[in-house]
């Protein structure tokens, strides 16, 4: 895949729908979402647990686990459709063009192989370097992600690294073949608070250096505010607001986003996240009619319980909320 000269975004997700067929009917975990990530851009994805963030990421890289499946929409990478590719073609894209960083560095590495072997294996899969060249590259990567004494560490096993160091190794692994998009699913949640900032800074710097775009899933509004160019806010399988980070953080349109932003901890204060919003997100099998947020929304009104709002442009951002609906009535609502 070569870089196209057009100004098409790097990743386009259009009307993506992810379903989970089960014994008691099919659940819709990601419901008709669309977004795009430009070359080198960092898109933050936030939302409560169960909003569908991880499933969206997994769908993009083609790693949805059965029974979850893409039931609609399309995913374009570099203007090429990738959601319907056969397994082998998709495999060549994974790692090489789209990389992924998982949440828990303690479990992301195979305990039985040295980090060097895992790095060289990945490098060799995606390049035609020699065994020796791959090892040299692996060493450079380890140095680049800030592993001290990399020459010695390269032959050590994952259990010999601390959590933060392991996440650095994981990042090195994800970057091995210089992918143009990295999906980072809560890359710091499992880490010690004291090293979270380091890892985020590292990830940000490396992606900038390598020119990689990032889809950064996180619960941490502080990280979003510092790192992301744009933010997508997810709620119950849908994007309820998406826009430039400054607008979303400072001038949130959607009442849910407002609640989320109200929960950004101030420096020095330890505030539980999401304390501002009462109640919990509905379960997938009990999503309320109309706007899914209406039972918890302080601004809900009659219409919110009857019809579901779609994303509408509201100045710099897009929000799915009836408060910003200028057209008087909509026909064919699904609620």
């Amino acid at each position: 895949m070569s870089r196209t000269g057009t100004n098409q975004p790097l990743l386009q997700v259009e009307n993506l729908r992810v379903e989970i067929p089960g014994r008691r009917g099919t659940l819709v975990a990601v419901d008709d979402i669309s977004f795009a990530i430009g070359e080198g851009e960092v898109l933050g994805v936030v939302g409560e647990s169960g909003a569908g963030k991880s499933l969206t990421g997994a769908a993009v890289i083609g790693l949805l686990e059965p029974p979850c499946r893409i039931a609609g929409g399309q995913i374009l990478f570099d203007s090429r459709r990738i959601d319907n590719l056969p397994y082998e073609k998709l495999r060549r894209i994974r790692g090489r063009h789209i990389g992924m960083v998982f949440q828990d560095p303690l479990t992301s590495l195979n305990p039985l192989y040295t980090v060097g072997r895992q790095l060289t294996e990945t490098i060799l899969t995606h390049s035609d370097l020699s065994e020796k060249g791959a090892r040299k590259r692996a060493l450079e990567l380890l140095q680049e992600v800030g592993i001290p004494a990399a020459e010695r560490r390269i032959d050590q096993y994952p259990h010999e690294f601390s959590g933060g160091m392991r996440q650095r190794v994981v990042i090195a692994l994800a970057l091995c073949a210089s992918p143009r998009l990295i999906i980072a699913d809560e890359p710091t949640t499992a880490l010690d608070v004291s090293i979270q900032a380091q890892i985020i800074t590292l990830l940000k710097r490396l992606c900038r250096d390598h020119g990689a775009a990032v889809m950064l899933v996180t619960h941490d509004m502080g990280v979003i505010a510092e790192t992301a160019d744009r933010v997508a806010v997810m709620y119950a399988g849908r994007i309820v607001e998406i826009g430039p980070v400054a607008d979303v953080v400072l001038r949130a349109r959607h009442p849910y986003t407002e609640g989320l932003m109200g929960s950004i901890p101030l420096v020095g204060h330890d505030v539980d996240r999401l304390t501002q919003i009462d109640g919990a997100m509905p379960r997938l099998n009990a999503i309320p009619a109309g706007c899914a947020f209406n039972p918890r929304c302080p601004k809900a009104f009659e219409r919110c319980r009857q019809a579901r709002p779609e994303l509408e442009t509201v100045e710099a951002t897009e929000a799915a909320c009836w408060l910003y609906e200028e057209a008087p009535e909509r026909s064919g609502t699904d609620g």
Partner: peptide, 9 residues
């Protein structure tokens, strides 16, 4: 999962 995400065969 991570091994698959790295595109290993």
């Amino acid at each position: 999962k991570f091994a698959r995400a790295r595109g290993l065969t």
